[in-house]
Simulated assay, not measured.
Amino acid sequence: MEGVFGVLKEDYGFRRFLTREKQSVKVEFMLLCFGYKLNKLHKSIQTQSLGVTLYKNSIS
C-alpha cells in the first residue's frame, strides 16, 4: 500500500488536496485513485499481460 502513495507523490506530483470540504476531498481522492488504476490498466494492456487488446489490428 505504501508504494501507491509513493507513486502518487513522486510520479504524479501530488502533494496536497486542492479542496477543503470533507466531501470534496473524498471526491478528489477517488479521482486520483481512478487515474492511478486506469494508468495501471493501460500499462497492462500495452504490455499484453492481460491477453486483451484495445482494438483488432486490421493490417494483414
Rank of each mutant, 00 (worst) to 15 (best):
R15A: 15
K40W: 03
T19E: 10
D11Q: 12
F17K: 06
F29Q: 08
R20F: 03
D11W: 06
D11Y: 09
N57W: 02
G6S: 11
Q46Y: 04
E2D: 14
V7R: 14
I45Q: 09
V4A: 13
E10T: 11
L32D: 04
E10S: 11
Y55E: 09
K22V: 11
L54A: 08
I45M: 13
K26R: 13
L50P: 02
I59C: 01
K22H: 06
E2M: 13
N39T: 05
V27E: 12
T53P: 02
I59R: 04
V27K: 08
V7C: 12
K26P: 01
S49M: 01
S24N: 11
S60V: 02
L32Q: 06
F29C: 09
T53A: 03
K9E: 11
E28T: 05
V27T: 14
S60T: 01
K37C: 09
E10W: 05
N39I: 02
S49V: 04
T53F: 01
F14Y: 15
S58Y: 02
M30E: 12
K22P: 05
I59G: 01
G51M: 05
S44F: 00
L32R: 10
G6I: 05
F29E: 10
F17Y: 15
E10C: 04
Y55A: 12
S49R: 06
V52T: 02
S49Q: 08
M1P: 13
G13Y: 03
H42N: 13
L41E: 10
E28P: 08
N57R: 07
S60Y: 01
Q48M: 04
L41A: 12
G51V: 12
K9Y: 09
Y55Q: 11
M1C: 11
L8W: 14
N57T: 10
E28N: 08
F5Q: 07
K26L: 07
F29W: 08
N39F: 00
G13V: 12
F14I: 13
K56I: 06
V4C: 10
V4F: 06
T19W: 01
L31E: 08
V25I: 15
R16T: 14
K40G: 02
L18D: 07
L31A: 04
F5I: 09
V25W: 00
Y12M: 13
L31Y: 03
C33D: 03
F17C: 11
Q48G: 05
F29P: 07
Q48Y: 06
F5L: 15
G35E: 04
I59K: 04
I59W: 01
L54R: 10
E21D: 09
M1G: 14
M1L: 07
K43M: 06
E21R: 14
K37W: 07
M30T: 15
F14Q: 07
S24F: 03
Q46N: 07
I45A: 09
F29A: 15
S49E: 07
R16L: 09
Y55S: 12
V25D: 00
F5Y: 12
V52G: 00
Y36S: 12
L41R: 12
R15E: 15
G35T: 05
